[in-house]
Amino acid sequence: MMESGGKGSLERLFWGAGSIVVVAYALIPVAWIISLSLKRTADLSDQRFLPSVVSFENYGVVFHDPQFPPALWNSMSIAGLSTLIAVLLAMFVAYAVVRLEFPGRRLIMAAALAIAMFPPVSIIGPLFNLWRSVGLYDTWAGLILPYITFALPLAIWVLAAFFRQIPWDLEKAARVDGATPLQAFARVIVPLAAPGVFTASILVFIFAWNDFLFAITLTSSNDARTVPAAIAFFTGSSRFEQPTGAIAAASVVVTVPIILLVLMFQRRIVAGLTAGAVKG
C-alpha cells in the first residue's frame, strides 16, 4: 500500500508539474497581452506584469477605430464562409474516398497532401497579379478562395480519418431496421460523424481566422481587410504614440472567439462517441 501510494503521488506530482509548465508556457504571453490591453496608455512601459489601474481605454480606442469594426465583420464572415464551404466539400470528398471504390482514390488523397505542403508564400505574388486582373483583389471571395484551397486538404484528411472509424455496419443495420438511405444517414451516420465535422470545422476556422499573409497581400481597404491585417495598420491616437495598448486590446478581441469556440465544442471533439458500437 505504502509503495503504491508513494508511486501514485509521485506520478501525480510529475503530471501536475508537467501540466503547469506547459500551461504557463502557452498562457503567459496571453496573460501579458491581456494585462497590456488593460493598462492606461501612460502605464504601458511601467514594467509591471499586472496593471496598476485597470482601464478599458484601449478597448474604447479599438472599437472607435474606423478600421477595426469592419475588419472584425470581415474576419468573421470570411472565416465562417470559408469553413462552411471547405468542410462541406471535404465531407463529400472524404465520404467518397472512404465509402466508394473508384479509381484514383489514393491519388486524390496524395494530391490533397501535396497542396497542403505547398508554401503559400510562393504563390502570393502571382495570385496578387491574377486577382487584380480578374477583379477579385480586395474582395471577400478573393480571400475565401485561397483559404478554401489551403484548408481543404487538412479538412479532407481529418474527416477521412474520422469516417474510417465509423462502423459502417450501422448503416446496414439501420437499413434493415426500416430506414431509407437518407434516414440511415441522418439518424445514424451524422450523429457519429458530428465530432469529426466539428474538429475539422474548428481547425479550418482557426486557419482562416489567423491568416495574415493572404489578408495583408490581397486586401487594400475595409471592404475585405481582416483583423490580423487591420491590426498592422493601427496607429496611436497621436503620431508620437505607440499603438501598443490598442494592438493588445485588438488581439484579445480576436482571441476570445477562438477560445469560446474551442471551449464550447471541446466535449464534442474529445468525446469518443463511436466507442462501444462494436465489440471490444
Binding site: P167, D169, L170, K172, A173, A174, R175, V176, D177, G178, A179, T180, R187, V188, P191, L192, L273, T274, A275, G276, A277, V278, K279
Partner: peptide, 30 residues
Amino acid sequence: VDPKDRNMAMVFQSYALYPHLSVRENMAFP
C-alpha cells in the same frame, strides 16, 4: 424490394448497436 420493406430483422456479427443511443432507444429505433 428495399431492405427496409422486407420486414426481416438482422443481428450483425459486430452487433451494430447505435452508440449514440441508449439501450431503450436502440430497441425502439425500428
